[in-house]
Computed example of a mutant assay.
Amino acid sequence: MTHTEIDALVRQFLVDTATRGTPHPRVQQVVTRLTADLFKAIEDLDLTADEVWRGIEYFAEAGATHELGLLAAGLGLERFLDIRADAADTRAGLTGATPRTIEGPLYVAGAPESIGFARLDEAGADGGAEGEVLFMQGSVRGTDGTPLAGARVEVWHANQLGNYSFFDKTQPAFHLRRTIITDSNGRYQFRSTMPMGYGCPPAGTTQRLLDLLARHGRRPAHIHFFVSAPGHRKLTTQINIDGDAFLWDDFAFASRDGLVPAVRRIDDPARMDRHGVDRPFASIDFDFRLHRDMAGAPAAEVARQRAAA
């Protein structure tokens, strides 16, 4: 069939049959377009019925095993949405803030809150495995440099095995997850353990597809953030740990210039004492800069289902 014939067929299937009331115009528009594009791909690629049903079964399995969010990252869909959001910001004249990057599928709402400082790691939560102690600190500011007191810094990252609490039931629900409210100077700090890079589940649906595409499923070590403040646009971002072998080869395409801060190793006994540790530790300085709210600007938040403990 020609593309014109397919468009007519899809209209017959999905538009002409709308006889039981008024269809939702946006839903009808999107479903009609995506169905037509799918039919055209089947025709152009000469997909067999076996291949089509295998694809349907694949997506059913990916949904049942909760890997659709992982697949969206691995196919570049989540990064593509960020590219479009960056372009929309630029058209609106929004420049100078910390770069956004993907949220990923592993945020959990409701993490404990504290002012100025939080300790993310909980005693014994990783089965006695002692990772490198990490202190990360900085400020939240507007793009004009003004410190933002009372800003919310939501932070979450993986443990030493590359697993996230809540989803990994061997960990307490909020291990390596906290919300820090900046102090009167817009400052935040947290103590944690240095996160590790990790890969897709080796037998999972995402990695099976990546194998067929001759791609790896590895992510560099990273730390996720939501940063928000009254009168400012919410930022979704993450920092990657400098020196990781996959720093610029992230299967999720989330590494960006401006999000790879230096990691300093501190072995000075006086500084170790001031930080309450008995061994050398890693330190990262990073400031977040937020856009002010602006009438008519594109949305800064994404409405999507998220876990809550």
Rank of each mutant, 00 (worst) to 15 (best):
G127Y: 08
Y58D: 06
R84K: 05
R26A: 14
A109E: 15
L45N: 12
G63M: 11
P112N: 04
P112C: 01
V30K: 06
L47D: 00
G127R: 04
E103T: 13
A36L: 01
V133D: 09
I83H: 05
L45E: 13
E51C: 03
P112K: 00
A87H: 12
G128W: 09
Y107S: 11
V30G: 02
D37V: 06
I56Q: 08
E67W: 11
L106Y: 10
I102G: 05
A73R: 07
Q12G: 07
R26F: 01
E57H: 15
P112F: 04
T98G: 14
A97N: 08
R54V: 06
T17K: 02
L106T: 06
E132A: 14
R100H: 15
P105S: 06
A36N: 13
E78R: 09
R79L: 03
L77I: 13
L81V: 06
W53I: 15
P112G: 02
L77H: 11
Q28K: 12
T17W: 01
L94M: 11
G76L: 03
V15S: 09
L94I: 11
D37S: 07
Q12E: 13
T65G: 05
P99R: 06
M136T: 07
G55C: 03
M136V: 11
G63L: 08
G131I: 02
R33G: 07
E78A: 15
M136K: 03
I6W: 00
L14R: 00
I42H: 01
T48G: 12
A62P: 03
H66C: 04
A64W: 04
L14P: 00
Q28R: 14
P25S: 09
A118W: 00
D16W: 08
T101R: 02
F135E: 01
I102H: 02
L70Y: 04
R20N: 12
F80T: 15
